[in-house]
Simulated scan of single mutants.
Amino acid sequence: MLSYLAAALPPDASAEGRLLALQCALRSNTSGQVYLPAGLLRGMRLGRALAPWDELEDARWLLRLPHPTEQTGHRTAAAQLLDAAVLTQEPARHDRHQAADWALCAISRSRLRALPAADRLTALVLTTHHSPNAGRSSMEADHLTRTCGLDQHTLTATLNRLVSVNAVEAWTFELVTEDVSWNSPRQ
């Protein structure tokens, strides 16, 4: 889903917008509607932030629905996803909900909680691309920056902050392959 969003969202979409889009895409129903409880938005550290919603609306990726009804709950944000391709993404809806819960837990870990959204999104991307059997994982730098909505300079600072909080053990940029390689901390 992260790769889909890297292609579907504008390159300048913020990390907050990307995290919101990820939850919306994973939690949407078969009609492309999504209802996000206020607690979930607080857990993502988005709370009452309107900028990510505005950004996704400006990109014509979603449309906020009028204030929720009694049926959906008054403390729920509601939206209609406008990109039909999101509904064709695998896996099935139940598995997408599990992935949404996992992603929320991954970005809410205590070591990441105080970091900016871009750092939390990058940690999530690295975690999803980590191969536990390989020891060291890698990803094309261009793909990583596009998925996280970062430029190369910002990526460097973000990776260094992830090392400082032990979310990543170490990282390198491979000049020949133009890959970013990293070691995840030992559990």
Rank of each mutant, 00 (worst) to 15 (best):
A92S: 10
E90M: 09
L121T: 06
N160V: 09
R42E: 15
A84S: 13
T172L: 10
A157Y: 08
G39N: 11
A15F: 05
L150E: 02
F173N: 07
L126Q: 02
A170D: 15
Q98I: 05
A170I: 01
H97S: 07
P116Q: 09
Q152S: 09
N183C: 11
R113A: 12
S110N: 13
A7N: 08
T69L: 15
L155P: 06
L124R: 01
L46T: 07
D119W: 05
R60M: 13
A118I: 09
D151E: 13
H67L: 12
N160I: 07
A13W: 03
E90W: 07
L124T: 00
A38P: 04
L19K: 00
E16F: 01
L62Y: 01
V180W: 00
E16V: 02
H74K: 11
W53D: 09
D101I: 01
Q152P: 11
A99N: 02
R48E: 14
R111I: 05
L159G: 03
S137R: 08
L41V: 08
S14E: 06
L2N: 06
E90R: 15
L144N: 01
T30F: 14
T122M: 05
L20V: 04
S137Y: 01
A79K: 04
E57K: 06
L19I: 13
L40F: 10
R75D: 15
S164P: 02
Q187N: 14
S3M: 10
L2H: 03
S110M: 08
F173L: 09
R96Y: 06
N133S: 14
T147W: 00
A99E: 10
V86S: 12
L124P: 02
P116Y: 02
L36R: 08
T158P: 03
Q89L: 11
H143M: 02
E70V: 12
L121R: 03
A100F: 06
R27E: 12
Q71L: 15
R109I: 00
M139F: 00
T172K: 09
T128W: 00
V165N: 03
S181N: 06
A84P: 11
F173W: 07
H153D: 14
R48M: 11
G135A: 06
D119S: 12
L82R: 11
H129N: 00
L46C: 06
A13V: 02
R113T: 00
Q71F: 12
V180I: 15
S28K: 11
A167K: 04
G73N: 03
R136I: 01
R161S: 10
P11M: 02
S110A: 14
W53P: 01
E178T: 01
V163Y: 02
L87G: 14
H67Q: 13
L5Q: 05
H153P: 05
A141C: 09
L26K: 05
C24T: 13
Q33G: 10
